[in-house]
Lab assay of single mutants.
Amino acid sequence: CHSECLGNCSQPDDPTKCVACRNFYLDGRCVETCPPPYYHFQDWRCVNFSFCQDLHHKCKNSRRQGCHQYVIHNNKCIPECPSGYTMNSSNLLCTPCLGPCPKVCHLLEGEKTIDSVTSAQELRGCTVINGSLIINIRGGNNLAAELEANLGLIEEISGYLKIRRSYALVSLSFFRKLRLIRGETLEIGNYSFYALDNQNLRQLWDWSKHNLTITQGKLFFHYNPKLCLSEIHKMEEVSGTKGRQERNDIALKTNGDQASCENELLKFSYIRTSFDKILLRWEPYWPPDFRDLLGFMLFYKEAPYQNVTEFDGQDACGSNSWTVVDIDPPLRSNDPKSQNHPGWLMRGLKPWTQYAIFVKTLVTFSDERRTYGAKSDIIYVQTDATNPSVPLDPISVSNSSSQIILKWKPPSDPNGNITHYLVFWERQAEDSELFELDYCLKGLKLPSRTWSPPFESEDSQKHNQSEYEDSAGECCSCPKTDSQILKELEESSFRKTFEDYLHNVVFVPRKT
């Protein structure tokens, strides 16, 4: 048989008469490798580009789960590009990614509803959504962080984005990388972005840091009482949809009607710091009717980097990364020049730590249904340095008659930039024990000054392991946590139920 035959053949030295091919099969003959313009397919066939392209389009058009959109890589027609490569849609070739590779997620039936953290986790790592997304989240724990972890990498949506009755959302900033909504599939009414009845939605994105392009379709905003109209108009300008909307697409009466839409800028007039305090004062603000001013709200939190936005980490279910302080308005003076500047002394802060701070007014709604208010920009203030805590785990070892090696770990709280350490030492008198000992005694162990690591005695271990207080009263049991108490109650309830079950099964009433 021919060298490319495997198993047997019907005619000697003829690659077209093989029972099976050793390498690849091409047009009725066995070959060692697939010549151009053919590609290896499933490690035994040679196919042309049209064959591989037909497989790709067949799966793409069917949208069946589990099928493969075949691509070409290293002269092979394979189910998908290997790690580190992405497909070129024009020629199906796998090309190296520039940075992290995109991950295209194809949605069944063309859309997916995100109504819980669990459903959001199914899209973790996706960068391109081939379909439409509907966000409908009523509640949950730590929602802002969970949504950002699972949806934060999405850069492109081919269909539309719909935010509907998501009472738990305060902001859409968890879509931190969303840059493009194509609108290839539109919501009824030709809408590519749809926001309806979101009672706590206050911000779409921080438009000073976020760009969003909507290729096709219109915007729809109705019944978002805490979303200011200025935020919607800003989205029109940034996304390129200005002029597409009709009169009733953006409701003037049901958007922002319960919001404090600040239209003035508060400026800080005085800032002073110490290692654990920050004193702030800002310019006074009074609405047209000074009785509408209820006070100020001061927001602050630790910020290692200057990239904080107002609604980071917030949701309507209680999660809030900001510390909020309510401040009463100052006494009002008739003389504008003698107006008191409101302020606040922030206490209990960490030394040498940068804080993000902003302040906003708290006002009631005027009778004319106009909203007044003022808010400052987010500023960054760093507390002063102070003395560091003591170095940890000092170790001293003498390696000769004239040297001592000293080692330690950095302090747990540096409280500033540590530039150097101060080492103090003092000579001590020799131990009298060394002169009084009889060095001729056998088995004498000389006193040693070398360091030995501390260890816990058996008594201390027994005390720590004991669940009861000892007789001397030195140790006591740790208080039980809520989960331990709940577990004990469940076990007790189970024992009672099981005992009742045994009584009912074992003891049967005697027939009379």
Rank of each mutant, 00 (worst) to 15 (best):
R176Y: 12
P351Y: 08
K162A: 00
L133M: 11
T254W: 13
P351F: 10
K267S: 12
Y223R: 06
S192L: 04
F193I: 08
S171C: 06
Y194Q: 13
I114S: 03
R247C: 11
Y305T: 07
R202Y: 05
L212E: 04
T118N: 15
R369W: 07
N224A: 06
D289I: 02
K267N: 13
D384P: 12
Q258N: 05
C228L: 03
Q258D: 01
P394R: 07
T361N: 02
Q354N: 07
L153M: 14
S319T: 05
I114N: 00
E122Y: 13
I181R: 01
M235A: 08
S171A: 07
A144I: 03
L212S: 02
F275M: 08
D384N: 09
S402P: 11
L252M: 08
D315R: 15
R182S: 09
D249N: 07
K301E: 04
H222V: 13
G140S: 15
T215P: 13
R179H: 14
Q382R: 07
I163R: 01
F174S: 05
L169W: 01
S119F: 02
I278P: 01
S401Q: 11
I134A: 05
E262T: 04
T185Q: 08
L212M: 12
N248W: 10
E184A: 13
T113K: 12
Y223Q: 05
N307M: 10
S173W: 09
P287V: 05
Q121L: 02
T353K: 03
K277L: 12
K209H: 15
E148L: 13
T113Q: 15
G343R: 10
F268Y: 10
W286M: 02
H341Q: 14
A374F: 03
Y305R: 07
K350I: 06
F290P: 04
K267F: 13
N198T: 05
G313S: 11
P394Y: 03
N340R: 04
M346Y: 06
N198M: 06
V390M: 15
C126Y: 02
L227S: 04
I154H: 03
V381E: 08
T185S: 11
A120H: 04
K177G: 04
R247D: 06
L172W: 02
L227K: 02
T241F: 06
F220N: 14
A374Q: 02
W286I: 14
L172M: 12
E264L: 11
K218S: 00
V397I: 15
K337W: 10
K337G: 12
K209Y: 08
S173N: 11
N190I: 15
I135Y: 01
Y160A: 02
S192C: 10
L280F: 04
I214K: 03
H106C: 00
R347N: 07
P336Q: 13
K350W: 07
L252P: 14
Q258F: 02
M297Y: 00
L201Q: 06
N190V: 14
Y270S: 14
L293R: 01
Y372L: 04
V390T: 13
D312N: 13
S321I: 03
V381I: 11
A356N: 04
R164T: 07
S239E: 02
Y300M: 12
I114H: 02
Q121F: 04
W352D: 14
L266D: 01
W322L: 03
L169Y: 07
N142M: 08
T273V: 15
N399C: 11
L161D: 00
H210R: 09
G240R: 09
S274P: 01
L345K: 08
I188A: 15
E236P: 07
N340H: 11
K242W: 08
F311R: 14
T127F: 15
W352K: 09
G373L: 03
K277P: 01
Q339M: 09
Y285K: 02
E122P: 02
G131P: 02
D115M: 05
H341N: 12
W282K: 02
P288E: 10
D384L: 09
A145T: 04
I114C: 04
P330G: 07
D315Y: 07
W352E: 04
E283N: 13
P330F: 11
E155V: 04
T386R: 11
P330W: 04
T361V: 01
M346I: 08
F299V: 06
F311Y: 08
R165M: 08
G110F: 05
L266P: 03
I114T: 01
L178E: 01
I327D: 00
T185M: 07
S132Y: 03
S239C: 13
T386V: 07
D206P: 10
P391N: 00
E246H: 05
A316R: 15
N340Q: 14
N307Q: 14
S116C: 15
V397G: 15
S321P: 03
R165V: 08
E283Y: 12
D326S: 04
S171L: 02
E236F: 13
H341C: 15
V117M: 11
L280M: 15
I188N: 03
F221A: 12
K103L: 04
K267A: 10
H210A: 09
T383F: 01
S321H: 10
P304E: 06
P410T: 13
N198S: 10
E310Y: 14
Y223D: 03
Y300E: 01
C261K: 03
Y300T: 06
P304N: 13
V104Y: 03
R347T: 09
I181K: 01
T118P: 03
K242N: 08
P225G: 14
P287M: 05
